[in-house]
């Protein structure tokens, strides 16, 4: 019974983090919408190129921006956001950079 309790505590902690995450997700969605309206912001390209240069050769050789289409980069960057621990904004900026450089 004691061990069961030990299992329950971390699960409760994870659920709490998830709950907070979901709350935060709503605010993020709003922020994302605001970002979408400033899509042509040239700083996204500049910041994206920096994050790309700093991050994308960390684990493997740098892939050429021209190696994928715009839509393929969307999936690949979502995937790499999870791998590399990028924030939503960093991932968005790298995507803008790649989509404008391919």
């Amino acid at each position: 019974m004691r061990t069961k309790l030990f299992t329950l505590v971390p699960i409760a902690a994870i659920s709490a983090v998830l709950g907070l995450g979901m709350l935060a997700a709503q605010t993020t969605a709003a922020a994302e919408e605001a970002k979408a309206t400033t899509q042509s912001d040239p700083m996204q390209f500049v910041n994206g190129s920096k994050t790309w240069a700093n991050t994308c050769a960390r684990c493997h050789n740098m892939r050429d921006p021209k190696s994928l289409r715009d839509d393929q980069w969307r999936a690949a960057i979502a995937h790499m956001r999870v791998r590399a621990g990028l924030t939503a904004e960093e991932a968005k900026n790298v995507l803008v950079f790649l989509q404008q450089s391919n």
Partner: peptide, 8 residues
Amino acid sequence: FLNDNLTL
């Protein structure tokens, strides 16, 4: 993607 910094 739960928020800017967390993914489940």
